[in-house]
Design a protein around this nucleic acid. Structure first.
Length: 424
DNA sequence: TCTGGGGTCCTAGGACCC
DNA sequence: TCTGGGGTCCTAGGACCC
């Protein structure tokens, strides 16, 4: 009885999104690459079976991919973002208490007896599949940490049929005794190694570890994790996403960039994108940082990286101000004669838009005029697609842009990229 | 040729203040 | 002989997540 947590996790999410519109890839190995076609960030089960590890650099896999006929896609975040919204909309019809944890995961609070909750979980799986075409795994437990763990078990064991409810499970300790301690949410490689060398190998070992020792070695967050493993809920559902405390926009370039002009276009674009994100969450930033870096994977190239931060005259989200300031900072750190690989813009000191201090030397009317201009621009870009309106300093050709050689179409968000079905 | 892009939280230590 | 004590703020660094 009482309240339990269900973690709903989309299986191989990016790959699943691509497969919806390519049913021919159903049983085939498929991978999706990171920005710039850099690393593998999503794999179908068939691709995992081939031994391709998560995060593998794409250029090292070329041979294997050709031999095994692996289908390859560049990241298509427009598509994944839209599919994510559809999945989350579906989930929200099952519980008023829901936390969207990432693009492909959500926690739901469910109430009722164990069997009823399990049945509800099955219903959720089938509905998400029917309405969106995305397969999900569901873990149900009295705490969020145990729910995450249960969903991991589900993915490893196909006999469970995509769902495991460990609420009051008679063999819980036994199950935990078979899981590596690194399977726990909050235990990464460092803590994993530390725990192992101290003799805590399985999740069960960690669950039974002495409190004072855990507190000393893994701080309060670690102790919370252990309590959660014991079934004592310490992490509540966070229904309203709090505004972000820092916003970063950075990209690696599709090729090395040396000229100040190209860096200026890139930095102006990131500044504009960051300002858009700020406005999207109703915030203004007090500080702006610009950084640039050469490619550290090419040690024979001369290396240089630098960044600089300045306070803004007044917390702001006004794109022209951000672009102007970012370009001034770029000129301060730019050095000719290097092959730059990456640049970025960071916003910090984030405050709500409405209680920001007004600039003493600027009439209120002007600030209102700026906000109106940004609202119009955001509205157009939301309705007609990103970058319908942009500033000249962001550049037109963007020759420095990402490599995306294997991009699928934006099937669900562009009229001219809709999937076409032919009945022969 | 070629190695992603975001975020969060916690702690320790230094600066500064009274 | 021997150099207060308590509080706050900020930053850097470490750990983790997807």
């Amino acid at each position: 009885m009482g309240e339990v947590f269900a973690l709903v996790d989309c299986n191989n999410f990016y790959v699943s999104c691509e497969r919806i519109f390519r049913p021919d890839l159903k049983e085939r190995p498929v991978v999706v690459l990171s920005n710039n076609d850099g690393n593998v960030v999503s794999l179908s089960n068939e691709a995992k079976t081939l031994g391709i590890p998560f995060g593998a650099p794409f250029f090292k896999l070329a041979e294997l991919i050709a031999e095994e006929g692996v289908a390859v896609f560049s990241s298509n975040y427009t598509l994944y973002g839209d599919m994510s919204r559809r999945v989350m909309d579906t989930l929200s019809s099952f519980s008023p208490d829901m936390e969207i944890y990432s693009i492909d995961e959500a926690f739901l609070a469910l109430r009722g007896g164990t069997d009823a909750v399990t049945g509800r979980g099955r219903d959720i799986r089938e509905t998400v599949m029917r309405w969106t075409g995305i397969p999900v795994s569901i873990g149900i437990a009295p705490t969020k940490t145990l729910a995450k763990l249960a969903s991991k078990v589900v993915k490893k064991d196909s006999s469970l049929g995509g769902l495991l409810n460990i609420t009051g499970h008679p063999h819980l300790q036994e199950i935990l005794g078979h899981l590596d301690v690194e399977a726990v949410w909050g235990v990464g490689p460092r803590y994993g190694g530390m725990l192992r060398s101290a003799g805590f190998r399985t999740v069960r070992d960690l669950m039974l570890a002495p409190d004072h020792w855990v507190r000393k070695k893994m701080h309060v967050t670690g102790l919370r994790t252990v309590m959660e493993l014991r079934g004592i809920s310490c992490l509540a559902l966070e229904d309203a996403a709090p505004p972000k405390k820092g916003i970063v926009c950075s990209r690696s370039f599709g090729r090395p960039v040396s000229s100040l002009e190209e860096l200026q276009e890139a930095v102006a674009s990131y500044a504009a994108r960051g300002a858009e994100k700020l406005r999207g969450q109703g915030s203004a930033a007090s500080f702006l940082t610009v950084f640039i870096a050469t490619n550290r994977f090419v040690p024979e190239d001369p290396q240089y990286s630098n960044g600089v931060t300045v306070p803004l005259p007044v917390p702001s989200s006004y794109t022209p101000l951000m672009i102007r300031t970012a370009l001034q900072l770029l000129e301060r750190i730019y050095r000719p004669g290097f092959r730059y690989k990456k640049a970025g813009v960071m916003f910090s000191g984030i405050v709500p838009q409405w209680d920001r201090q007004l600039d003493l030397f600027r009439p209120v009317r002007e600030s209102e005029r700026q906000q109106r201009l940004m609202r119009v621009m955001d509205g157009v870009n939301r309705g007609m697609g990103r970058d319908t309106l942009y500033f000249a300093s962001q550049g037109v050709t963007r020759a420095w842009g990402m490599r995306r050689a294997y991009l699928s179409r934006r099937y669900t968000t562009r009229w001219n990229e809709l999937p076409v079905v032919r009945a022969i």
